[in-house]
Amino acid sequence: MNPMKALELHSVFKSFGEITAVNDLSLTVDRGEMYALVGPDGSGKTTTIRMLCGIVKPTSGELRVLGFDVQKQKEEVKKRIGYLSQKFSLYGDLTIDENIEFFAEIHGVYDYKARRNELLEFTRLTPFRDRLAEKLSGGMKQKLALACTLIHTPEIIFLDEPTTGVDPVSRRDFWKVLAALLKTGITIIMTTPYLDEAERCSRVALMDNGNILMADTPANLKKVMNGEVVEIVCSDIRRSFALMKKHHSVKEVQAFGDRLNIVINSSVADMQQILVHLQENMITVNDWRVVKPSLENVFISLLTDRKKV
C-alpha cells in the first residue's frame, strides 16, 4: 500500500493448467531502481512481468504497481507504465514517426511532438524518422520500440529481454540510453539472459522454478557465493576441462579460450591437490589466481546447490 514503492508483490501464484509458472513470489522494488530478473528459461520471469502489466491474471496473490492494485485499478496502472515485450512489435508498415504517434495517442498523449523529437534525438533515430519500421536494423527497431514505450512518460517501464538478438554495439548504445533514462527518476524493471547486463542493475533477483532464489545488489550477491572462483591458465584446455569436470572438489568449470574458471570451496584447502592432479596428467599450468566471482558464477553455483538439495 506504499505509493513510494514501485512494485509490491505478495505471495503471487500463477499456473497454466498443470504447470506452475510463478510459485509464491514476493518482491518489493523501490522507485528509481533498475531491477533485473534473471534466471533460466521457464523460470517465470516473463510471466511475472506480464502479470505486472495486467496482460496475465495471477491465480492468486496481490500485485501493486506504484501503489495501485493491478487487478482492481488496471486503468490507473496502464496510464503509468510502459511495456517493452520480448518481441516488441512495431507496425512495420508505418514509419518511425507514425509508430510513435500511434503509441502516443493510444496512451492519450495528443501533444506528443516535442517529446517525440526529444526521444528521437535521444535514441539517435532522427535521420530515419520517415523510414518504415520494417526497413530498420535490429538495434534501431529496439530503440524505436523503447521510444514508443517512453512516449507517454511512464513512471515505470518493464523491459522483457530488451537486448536479445541485438548486436553488441547496438546493445551498448541501448544501455547508454537506459542509463540516461534512469537519471530522470524512472523505475526500470527488466529481464535479461545476459548476466553482465544484470551486473549494471541496482538490484538483481535470481529466479528459478517460479520463485526468487535470492535478490540483492550484485555486490552482495557475490558475497553469498559458496566457495571461490579460481582462474587457471594452462595448456590443452579441452582435456583439462574434462579433468576438472570429474574432479571431486571442483563444483563448476567454465572454459574461456586459453583459461578455465573453476569454483571450489577454498583455494587454500583444495588448490594444491588440483594442481598436482593436472600435472600428473601432463598439463602445464602457466598461472592461476583467485578471481572475483561474476554473477554468472554465483547464479550457477546457487542453481547447482539447489539441485543437489
Binding site: 502489466c53 496510464k79 507504465i81 515485450s85 512489435s89 507496425y91 493510444i106
Partner: peptide, 13 residues
C-alpha cells in the same frame, strides 16, 4: 500474429 495487440492491451485503449 505480429503481437502488436499486446502493446494495445497494456495501453488504456
Amino acid at each position: 500474429e505480429r503481437n502488436t495487440i499486446e502493446q494495445i492491451d497494456v495501453s488504456p485503449v
